[in-house]
């Protein structure tokens, strides 16, 4: 790829109306890629867990400027919102002169800060279809209470019918090169293991040591925050 010349090769997309706005659709929501975290926080129709997520991004100054699209395309493994898109089965609408296509969140992040878009594509919007019957949960464990980069970030979605979980989605950030789903834990939840499903965490994630935390801490915390969530909704 040719390196852009920052003195001239700049298109300022800030303020492009087609890229912003949070709108209800017949099936859910279209969140424009340039929606700021402040706008997400103010969009009270969105699921509360997503609003909580927005509130944990940096602090006010960052939330006024940081965007949903920026978080997704930057693709940092520590990106606060990424697990939420995975558990919401979000679709990313990307556009180029060749047209528009949608990439499921599960296929978007392909490696460390790599994604499935090609060079001439731009993320336009995120589409989500939250179900009011689902329990949606967000938990960020960071370095402090604000202005914090996550050490472990959890997104979870649970559908319960007749007291039994019939759908379970768990995703985590900050523990691998990309945000990951937790298939073993999900299966164990559906198999009726209840909160003990969290004990399968080590089969799903192999966190690394880095400057902000340790692998051992990440594994422990991942297990404990999932267990806490499951205990709340499925009992101990």
């Amino acid at each position: 790829m040719v390196k852009p010349n920052l003195l001239k090769d700049i298109i300022n997309i800030w303020g492009c109306t087609g890229l912003s706005g949070i709108d209800s659709t017949e099936y859910g929501f279209r969140i424009g890629a340039l929606s700021t975290w402040t706008e997400v926080r103010q969009a009270t129709a969105l699921p509360p867990a997503l609003i909580e997520c927005a509130a944990t991004v940096g602090a006010q100054q960052i939330q006024n400027r940081g965007t949903v699209g920026g978080n997704i395309v930057n693709g940092s493994p520590a990106g606060d919102s990424l697990p939420m898109w995975l558990v919401l089965d979000a679709e990313f609408e990307v556009a180029s002169t060749r047209g528009v296509r949608r990439i499921p969140a599960s296929e978007f992040w392909t490696g460390y800060r790599k994604n499935a878009m090609v060079d001439d594509e731009l993320l336009v919007a995120v589409h989500i279809q939250p179900k009011s019957t689902d329990i949606l949960h967000y938990r960020k464990v960071g370095t402090r209470m604000a202005q914090s980069i996550s050490k472990v970030v959890l997104g979870a979605r649970l559908r319960i019918a007749d007291g039994r979980p019939i759908e379970a989605r768990f995703a985590m950030g900050s523990i691998a090169a990309t945000p990951v789903r937790l298939p073993t834990v999900e299966a164990a939840v559906l198999a009726g293991e209840g909160a003990d499903a969290a004990t399968h965490m080590a089969q799903d994630i192999t966190p690394l040591d880095d400057i902000r935390s340790t692998s051992g801490y990440r594994l422990n915390v991942a297990t404990r925050v999932v267990r806490s969530f499951l205990e709340q909704y499925l009992g101990a």
């Binding site: 700049i10 300022n12 402040t38 940096g58 602090a59 006010q60 100054q61 960052i62 006024n64 400027r65």
Partner: peptide
């Protein structure tokens, strides 16, 4: 790097970090 807030200014009434804003977006 947008962490300390000492460079906070308001753009259209909203606080932002002036160290994180390219001037082109001030237009």
């Amino acid at each position: 790097e947008g962490e300390c807030g000492a460079c906070t200014v308001l753009i259209d009434g909203l606080p932002v970090n002036a160290c994180m804003i390219p001037v082109v977006q001030a237009e």
